[in-house]
Computed example of a mutant assay.
Amino acid sequence: MTEHAERIALSTGITLNVVTAGDPAAPAILFLHGFPESHRTWRHQMAEFARDHFVVAPDQRGYADSDKPQDVEAYTPDKPVADALALMDHFGKDRFILAGHDWGGAVAWMAALLNPDRVERLIICNAPHPYIFQKTLIDDPVQRNASQYFRAFRDPAIERHIESIGMDQFFDTSFAPYVDPAKVAEEKPVYLAQWTKPGAMTPMFNWYRASSIVVPALDETPERPAFLDAPFPRMQMPTLVIWGMRDTALTPVQLEGLDCFVPALTVCKVDAGHFVTWEAPEIVNGAIREWLD
């Protein structure tokens, strides 16, 4: 696979670093990464699907080699959704397959819900459906406990804390516990190089701060968000959900009841952790290939 990387100025006012491969005339797959990564989340999938698709993987706003506005408002969910659509407009792709992991999956869920005319098929890897995620944060004590890092990342003191302990220790305490120990050594220098760029950490945390998701404290009885008691729209396109079942941040409870919101649902459960795309690339690629075929 021959990759091409370029910085692309979008109509949203943001310039993204974007990696592409494959024939630009072929059907397109847009790959969106999450925290705390970059386009490299999808490196194994890009190598596989560039054989018969045009594959597009940006560093999302606030990450790696893309623009990093420092204000929280720049990361409200509508902004990265608009980036994704504008990026595919740039390549002249009216319809495309959309794949997302972690925060990239949150963007993908929203983009597909709001733009079914653009998203032909949806691929989600360890990223919770918005209704189920909010419901489990209220009702499921295990998921609520697992998501307390969300509150820590929203805390304005987190950047000063990282400064005091050093980036190495932040990696070892906040990131390494969620990945396959055998593979984390390979990734560490890549992450540290990205995270130590000037102004790199605040934008990544601003994705958490800008989200409207309610993450209650463990001892809190929160007000129930109104949308949980109202009808929620169904997905209109075929959707593949691949889930690393050893994910300790987003537990498998996220799969329960998902078929109620996604009529054309296929679920693939994988013996892997949260970073399933690079922890179990052969299985992920095989599941996507079988589903597409």
Rank of each mutant, 00 (worst) to 15 (best):
T20Y: 09
R40I: 06
D293I: 04
G92V: 03
E187I: 10
V72Q: 09
V262G: 01
A226C: 06
I14F: 07
Q194L: 08
F35C: 01
H44F: 15
A108K: 14
M204G: 10
L16V: 02
F150Y: 14
T20N: 06
D102S: 11
R144N: 04
L98F: 02
N17C: 05
T196L: 08
W278Q: 10
R40A: 09
Y63L: 06
V72S: 05
Y63V: 06
R121H: 03
L122Y: 09
M204N: 00
V270G: 03
V276L: 07
T251F: 03
P189H: 11
Q134T: 07
T277R: 00
V184C: 07
P58M: 10
P141Q: 09
L192F: 06
T277N: 09
A112H: 02
A57R: 12
W207N: 00
Y63P: 14
W243Q: 13
E37T: 06
R95L: 12
A64C: 14
P203Q: 02
M1S: 14
A200K: 11
E73K: 11
F91S: 09
W207A: 13
A146G: 09
V276W: 12
R151M: 02
T76Q: 11
D180E: 15
I213Q: 13
Y131V: 14
G34M: 04
Q169K: 15
W195G: 05
Q169P: 02
I162A: 01
A230P: 05
L240Y: 09
H90G: 05
F261I: 01
F170M: 06
M235A: 10
W109K: 03
